[in-house]
């Protein structure tokens, strides 16, 4: 217990977490501190490119094995399965409509790439290596949950748009997925040499940019929480904290079954525990327009994201270390 607290305390005073806390406090306190939309998008593009490229370069250096394919398939299976648990848990804990529950479930089956990046950075800081291809697993987990959410909404009587060409484009060609996978492929093709060429741009400034991005996420989360009166209830907040623990437990089981390293298991736990607030919200707005976007976004960004960032990641690291005996 002491070591969990020590790890959580060390995590809390990192520049990454403190930047998020600063943004959260500023947002809650109604400060006029804000990032223009174009800068926020620019920061996210940089992070997606950098993490994708580094992951691809790592795979080029260490080679491809059957475990990579198994990890990808496990990620897709997790993303497809998690929305069913999220849907059932949310309907059990709250009285939200079928459509809202399906939309929220879609968010929780998918992943938060920023939480993944933050966890990767913290693992690197502690000298814990992880499989480079976990970036590809993250990308593979973005979209399948959307299909599960739409299936849930359709089967349980919630209104849903027909999955037409426009929705498929939103699901499969979402900018964040295209950039993450594209940068991964470029990193894979160009390998260590390619990484060395642009290292001064995508490696050294990475943590600083991540701090700024998390500052912005904190502001958006704080504003969302401030305006969440009538959106969040005790049940929904409980869901926002319980669901990541369930997702992390499934990620832990999958990581152990795959035989991943300690870092890989932690990252799969983080992927299972996190909820999307970039790719899925847009798809849900197209497919489930009657769903309340404030509920999904406030839960994902205002409750689960801060929980994972502050307490969740250290807890997942401790749990994975205890189970793997590392």
């Amino acid at each position: 217990m002491d070591s969990i607290l020590a790890l959580a305390a060390a995590n809390l005073v990192s520049p990454i977490i403190l930047s998020f806390v600063l943004g959260l406090v500023a947002g809650l306190a109604r400060s006029d501190l804000s990032f223009p939309e174009a800068i926020a998008k620019g920061l996210s593009l940089y992070l997606l490119f950098a993490i994708g490229f580094k992951g691809g370069a790592g795979v080029a250096a260490h080679g491809v094995d059957a475990r990579l394919v198994a990890a990808l398939l496990s990620g897709v299976a997790l993303s497809l399965f998690l929305p069913f648990i999220a849907f059932a848990l949310l309907r059990f804990l709250t009285r939200v409509s079928v459509t809202d529950a399906a939309a929220v479930a879609g968010h929780y089956g998918s992943i938060s790439i920023v939480t993944f990046v933050a966890a990767s950075t913290l693992l690197t800081g502690r000298g814990i290596p992880a499989e480079s291809y976990m970036v590809a697993v993250a990308a593979a987990m973005e979209a399948p949950a959307i299909l599960s959410a739409l299936w849930l909404a359709a089967k349980r009587g919630g209104g849903t748009e027909q999955v037409g060409a426009e929705l498929w484009r939103e699901i499969l060609l979402n900018g964040s997925i295209v950039l993450l996978l594209g940068a991964f492929v470029i990193g894979w093709v160009t390998g260590e040499e390619g990484l060395a060429e642009i290292q001064s741009f995508i490696v050294e400034p990475f943590k600083g940019v991540l701090c700024l991005f998390l500052l912005d996420m904190g502001i958006v989360a704080g504003r969302g929480l401030r305006g969440s009166r009538g959106v969040l209830s005790a049940g929904t907040v409980a869901f926002g904290i319980l669901m990541p623990l369930v997702g992390a437990a499934l990620g832990l089981a999958a990581g152990l079954a795959l035989g991943l390293s300690l870092g890989g298991v932690v990252l799969l736990m983080v992927l299972g525990a996190s909820a999307s607030y970039i790719a899925v919200p847009a798809a849900m707005r197209v497919a489930l327009p009657e769903a309340n976007p404030a509920l999904s976004l406030t839960l994902a960004l205002g409750v689960t994201f801060p929980f994972n960032l502050t307490l969740g990641i250290p807890f997942y690291m401790m749990a994975a270390a205890a189970v793997t005996g590392s």
């Binding site: 939309e37 926020a40 305006g227």
Partner: peptide, 16 residues
């Protein structure tokens, strides 16, 4: 009816 919203700081197109 869906509450307040702002483009500032938004990354997802969902909020715009």
């Amino acid at each position: 009816r869906s509450g307040q919203w702002s483009r500032e700081g938004q990354v997802s197109r969902a909020g715009g």
